[in-house]
Write a protein that binds this DNA or RNA. Structure first.
Lengths: 155, 155
DNA sequence: ATAATATTGTTGTAAATGCAACACATTTTT
DNA sequence: AAAAATGTGTTGCATTTACAACAATATTAT
């Protein structure tokens, strides 16, 4: 009786979002292995974020990529080992921080990957009208800003 | 020069989707602990899916919740231990399968959680027009169906 | 001035996840 | 009829992840 009145979680936008994102991630991971890309998807995201936010410190990067500090450290260790970034000891508000800088080798790798995956990435949204894609992206960003206010991120 | 022509991955809908979904998941996980809900979010999703797809077998469930068989097994072990589901040995196309059935205790728990989290879940989309939420959900489903055709799921 | 708190990054550890291998039965191929 | 392939579920292991504790320094409170 009461059964039909209750909204199923699997009908909610939360679940729909998670499932779609999950599938997209799986697809991108498969693409990375298929194209023989040697850095992980998370490393690629971090590298891309660093390329846009020059001189960002580790903690701020962690906030952007939504990983905790520990895992951000590990991702950056990998990127540094591969010589795609350098860590520069500096200060921010009188505190010692490690600012991140992408190397030329990192820029080249980033561009190389972006070009490689472009057509595959575009292909996914091919069947959906561009204005709809943009609209979804806009609403998602709106969502995200609201979410950021509510979620307690202790990073 | 070529730098500005390349679309950054972090500007793509892939990344926007993943980040938004990630935040939503973090929020829901925090909600679960705050409300003292004793099953995991994944267990809850599985239970909800079983309640909608009665007599589903493990492999078909795995396809729906987008987990591999191994992890589906583990999630179901937990749910069975907590007496929220039972596994019924049966056949499907002459093959032995374990069909899943939700127990009364499972239904009660499911409803209890759904009621508990409802207001919080609604709250997230409060500031966005309902028709926009519906539109996003519709387009996401469209996305997802396209994705399912492309992604190789070896479950 | 001393103690408490906060910021930044690292390390340790337990849990979650993905992937491969296995077991077992059934279907299909040769 | 024998062999190969397929479908179903489980176990094992290596990787990823989240969370907590730590180290070092700077700020704030008492």
């Amino acid at each position: 009786m009461t059964d039909c009145k209750i909204l199923h979680y699997t009908d909610s936008i939360h679940y729909e979002l998670e499932q779609t994102a999950r599938l997209m991630r799986i697809l991108t991971l498969q693409l990375f292995t298929k194209l023989g890309i040697t850095i992980s998807l998370d490393e690629y995201c971090a590298l891309d974020t660093i390329s846009i936010n020059r001189q960002i410190c580790q903690r701020d990067l962690a906030k952007l990529i939504l990983k905790d500090r520990a895992n951000t450290t590990r991702i950056l260790n990998e990127l540094e080992k591969k010589e795609y970034i350098t860590r520069i000891i500096d200060t921010k508000n009188n505190r010692l921080v490690k600012k991140l800088e992408i190397t030329q080798k990192g820029i080249d790798e980033l561009n190389s990957i972006s070009i490689k995956i472009k057509s595959y990435i575009d292909n996914v949204t091919k069947k959906i009208a561009p204005e709809e894609v943009e609209k979804v992206q806009m609403i998602l960003k709106h969502f995200r800003l609201d979410l950021e206010k509510v979620v307690e991120m202790n990073i």
